[in-house]
């Protein structure tokens, strides 16, 4: 992945800041991976070695963490990552219908991304937002709900407008 020089400088600074509170450097692993992802949008394969070097830990341990924790993305994400909760409360409150709406409006099934990379759909486990069931989370925003076909369609429409206006 090609990264601008300024971005790399910024990233380096953010990594230092993230690691600063930890007396034991290895403990900063998750925080450092989070800032890499927050800055670049994902964790490209060529970031693994520099992160390991930065934390003075084996590359294998960084890779292991990347594959263990579901929040870390190992490929470039869509502009809007739609995370639809599939666990019990959301499921009994109409969560499956949300998948139906997304399939109908965007042609997406679980795990897929639209060809313009504007949207991706992921069925996720309990978001801890059961009082808003069925809940959906867009990117790293707090979960929102309760969603129904109309409110979800309106949300998708708004995101599409914002996404195309902002240029991607």
């Amino acid at each position: 992945m090609k990264v601008e020089h300024e971005t790399l400088v910024l990233l380096r600074q953010r990594m230092e800041d993230a690691a600063a509170p930890f007396a034991k450097r290895e403990s900063a692993l998750l925080e450092v991976l989070h800032v890499v992802q927050d800055t670049l949008g994902w964790i490209p394969p060529d970031a693994v070695e520099p992160v390991a070097e930065f934390l003075v830990m084996p590359v294998s341990k960084v890779s292991e963490a990347l594959s263990f924790y579901t929040m870390f993305r190992r490929k470039a994400p869509a502009r809007y990552r739609l995370q639809v909760c599939r666990t019990l409360t959301c499921a009994i409150c109409g969560g499956a219908d949300l998948h139906g709406v997304i399939r109908e409006k965007l042609g997406l099934a679980d795990g897929e991304t639209t060809s313009d990379t504007l949207f991706s759909l992921e069925a996720v486990e309990c978001l801890g937002a059961c009082e808003m069931a069925p809940a959906i989370r867009v990117n790293d925003e707090p979960a929102q709900g309760p969603m129904d076909a109309a409110s979800l369609a309106a949300l998708l429409e708004r995101l599409r407008r914002e996404g195309t206006a902002g240029g991607i």
Binding site: R25, E26, S27, L30, H34, E64, A65, F68, Y69, M71
Partner: peptide, 27 residues
């Protein structure tokens, strides 16, 4: 006092897994 983020693993709520995660690695 340090606030830190998990990364999407239910098992890290198990107390010894929380500790292995904080120590730096899979939980």
């Amino acid at each position: 006092m340090t606030v830190m983020r998990g990364a999407g693993a239910y098992i890290c709520g198990e107390e010894t897994a929380t500790l292995t995660s904080i120590a730096g690695g899979k939980g």
